[in-house]
Nucleic acid binder design. Structure first.
Lengths: 241, 241
DNA sequence: GCAAAAGTGTTCACATTACACCCATGG
DNA sequence: CCATGGGTGTAATGTGAACACTTTTGC
C-alpha cells in the first residue's frame, strides 16, 4: 500500500552505500561428473562445528575486484585444476539464516566436466565424488541447492547438447545413452535413441571402434560442435505445458 | 594450476567475514504487462548524473534482515501496490563495474501482472510502461538485463501457463492468442492455436461472450488452475536440440 | 449490406513409440 | 560355443502445419 511516489532508490538516486547494507557474497559450484555408470557430484568435507563431517559444495567468497562469473571460474580452477569447462549460473540463494557464520548470499553455478580429465588433479582427500542420487544430508542449504541444480541439469540436457561435456571426445552410442539414462533416471529404447541422435546429424562417425570390450565393439563418434553452431535453433516455437 | 589441498573456504572453515569482502546487493524487478496489444515493461526515470534521463528497472538494496526473495516482493509491492503477483528469480548480475556508485551485485526477478489491476496505484509520474520492443538504451546494464528477462519470458510462456498472469480472469481466445503473438513476436495460425489450447483442457468455457465489440463477440474462457495443478507434467522427456 | 472477427475440419508430412532378430567380439 | 552388447527396420500412432469458407455482430 505504499504509494510509489519518489521512493529513494539505488537505481534512481545517487546513494551512499553504508556498511550495514553490505553483505558477504559467495559462489558455489555444483560440479557434475559421470563415472562408473553413475552421475556424480564433487563435494568437500565441511569443518564448521555446526555441520561437522557433512558434505558441502565447493565455494568461496567473492573478491572485491572480481566479477561474479570470474569468481565461479576461480573456484572451479582452484578445486579441479581445469580451465575451459562448462559452467553456468543457476540461481542465487539469499535467505537470511542460510549460513551460520553470518549473512552470506550465494550465487550457484553448475559445471559439467569429464571425470577423467580431473582425476590427475584430485589430490585433496577431503574432496570426493558422490553419486547424486545417494546424497542425502549436506551442510547449509546445500541439499536444496543440489536438488535445484540437478533438476536444471535434467531439463537442460534435453534442450541443449551439453551432455558431451561429461564425456570423452570419442564415445560409443551406448555410453551416450547410459549418461542420458543416468541423468534422467529413466530407461530409453536403444533403437529409437540411436535413430534420434543420428537425425540430429551432430555426431561425426569416426570409423573407429571400442577396444578391449568383452563383446562386439561399438563404433565411436564425436560431437560436431561446428555443425551445431551453424544449425542451432535461434527460436523455438511450440506451446506445450 | 593451484593445488586443491586445504584451501580455506567459506563452506569448510569458520571464517570471519571482513568488511572488505562485503558488498551491496540489490534486487531489480523486470515487470511485464500487456496493454494496447503490446508487451510492456514498467520502468522508472533515473536521476544519477551518469545516466541522467535514462530509464531503469525498479530495484532497491537488500535490507540486513531480509530474505532475497522478500526484497523482490517488497520492491514490487512498493512500486505497484500489488501483492500475490507472479514473481520469479531470473539471474544475478555481478560485474565489478556495473554500478557507478560502487560495487553492487544485483539479483533480477521478473514479474507478470495485469496492467488493469495496477493502474489505480500508478501515481508516480516517473514510472512508465514501455513497449518492450521499443526500449533501446537504459541506465546501468539494464538493457542487457531486460533482454535476458525477455528471452526467459519467451521461453517460459511456452513451457508453463504463466501467460494468464498478464490477463483478466475472463478472456477470449483472440486475446490469448494476441498476447502469445506479442510476446513471441510471431504470428500464429488461428485454427491451430485454438485446437492446441482446447486439447490442454485447461480452459473453462464460461458460456459468456465479449460485449461492445464491433464484430461477432467471442466466447469467454478462464484458466483452470485447479486442473493444471492436478495434471501438470512432473517430468518431461524428449531430447530435442 | 458491409466490415470485422468468430468459429470450424481435413489433409499431409513428420516424429515418436513399440517391438525382435542376427552379428561381432572376447573369453 | 557362449555371453554380451552392437546394429538394424517397420508399422501404428500422434503431432504440427497449412489452408478457406460460413456465421454473427455493430454500424
Amino acid at each position: 500500500m505504499t504509494p510509489s511516489r519518489r521512493i529513494p532508490n539505488i537505481n534512481t538516486t545517487p546513494l551512499e552505500i553504508r556498511p550495514e547494507f553490505q553483505f558477504a557474497i559467495s559462489v558455489d559450484c555444483v560440479i557434475f561428473g559421470y563415472d562408473d555408470d553413475v552421475l556424480k557430484v564433487l563435494l568437500i568435507k565441511c569443518d564448521l562445528p555446526e555441520f561437522k563431517g557433512k558434505w558441502s559444495l565447493l565455494g568461496d567468497l567473492l573478491l572485491p575486484e572480481e566479477d561474479l562469473d570470474a569468481a565461479s571460474y576461480r573456484v572451479l580452477r582452484e578445486r579441479t585444476g581445469l580451465e575451459n569447462v562448462f559452467l553456468e549460473q543457476v540461481h542465487t540463494f539469499g535467505d537470511v539464516k542460510r549460513h551460520p557464520s553470518g549473512r552470506v548470499v550465494t550465487t550457484v553455478y553448475f559445471s559439467l566436466l569429464n571425470v577423467r580429465d580431473h582425476q590427475l588433479k584430485q589430490l585433496d582427500n577431503e574432496l570426493h565424488w558422490h553419486p547424486v542420487l545417494e546424497v542425502t544430508d549436506m551442510a547449509f542449504d546445500h541439499k536444496k541447492i543440489l536438488d535445484t541444480c540437478y533438476k536444471t541439469l535434467q531439463k537442460k540436457v534435453q534442450e541443449e547438447p551439453i551432455i558431451f561435456n561429461l564425456m570423452e571426445n570419442k564415445f560409443s552410442l551406448r555410453e551416450l545413452q547410459n549418461i542420458y539414462e543416468a541423468i534422467l533416471n529413466i530407461r530409453l529404447d536403444r533403437r529409437n535413441f540411436r535413430k534420434k541422435l543420428f537425425t540430429t546429424s551432430l555426431l561425426t562417425d569416426l570409423d573407429e571402434f571400442e577396444k578391449d570390450v568383452p563383446h562386439r565393439p561399438g563404433k565411436l563418434y564425436s560431437f560436431n560442435h561446428e555443425r551445431y553452431a551453424k544449425i542451432r535453433r535461434k527460436t523455438f516455437v511450440g506451446i506445450d505445458f
